[in-house]
């Protein structure tokens, strides 16, 4: 029970801290919208073309937005030393880190899902495809946060961790990108996508169980 209380306390603390800096919360959303807006300007505004590449555009942009927001996951806690306190607590570190990741996803991943319908409209996506897009985002973005957490935990102690973080994290995002964007593509063609959704769900379960372990090991290494 003490563990559960600590877990919830961490999520609450991180949410409160995030709401104190509301302006920063907007950054990933704005980034997501701007990147998606750039594509029609770059490839041309033919509705046919946009419709066919919309799933890929939205998912690649979501991937980049998720990656850019990762830096905030441990940065401020690392700088002010509260991360060390977290690691010293008697509770298992991986559970506490899972709490931090969940709070981070609520602040950065959930907003992406909320603006996705707007972007789908921009790119002329059908309603069926939109529903599947939302499903894949709900299942996929937590995986991005969980896997990304390992990357940030490894690089949080570095002064210039940004470039190396993208090299570490983006290859690991490939399976999510493949299955999620394919599901949306199939759905816009009216095909069944149960298999892809199930695979994404499996990835989420796997990441939920496994990712906090290397992330906590990496944090201990970064802090020491």
């Amino acid at each position: 029970m003490a563990l559960l209380r600590a877990f919830i306390a961490i999520i609450r603390r991180d949410l409160i801290l995030a709401f104190r800096r509301r302006a920063e919360m907007l950054n990933p959303i704005l980034f997501f919208i701007i990147v998606v807006t750039l594509f029609p300007l770059g490839v041309g505004a033919q509705p046919q073309l946009l419709q066919s590449i919309a799933p890929g555009i939205i998912w690649v942009s979501a991937l980049l937005a998720a990656m850019l927001s990762l830096d905030g996951l441990f940065r401020s806690d690392f700088d002010d030393g509260s991360l060390e306190q977290l690691l010293l607590s008697p509770h298992p570190t991986s559970i506490l880190i899972l709490g931090k990741i969940i709070a981070h996803w609520l602040v950065t991943g959930l907003p992406l899902i909320l603006v996705a319908p707007l972007l789908a409209e921009f790119l002329g996506m059908h309603t069926d495809a939109l529903i599947i897009l939302l499903k894949t985002l709900i299942l996929g973005t937590p995986v991005l946060s969980l896997v990304g957490a390992i990357g940030v935990a490894l690089t949080v102690g570095l002064r210039r961790g940004g470039m190396i973080l993208s090299l570490l994290v983006l290859p690991l995002y490939v399976p999510v990108l493949i299955f999620a964007s394919n599901a949306v593509e199939m759905a816009s063609g009216g095909l069944p996508v149960d298999a892809q959704i199930n695979i994404l769900l499996a990835m989420l379960c796997l990441a939920l169980v496994l990712a906090p372990l290397p992330a906590s090991a990496a944090l201990k290494m970064s802090v020491s």
């Binding site: 390992i150 490894l154 490939v174 399976p175 394919n182 990496a218």
Partner: peptide, 23 residues
């Protein structure tokens, strides 16, 4: 750090490999 990353990578390689093949 490298050891942690390599272990994470080794778990992911089959997943990446099969998803790329499927794609």
């Amino acid at each position: 750090a490298v050891a942690i990353l390599a272990l994470v990578g080794v778990v992911n390689i089959p997943i990446i490999h099969y998803s790329v093949e499927w794609w």
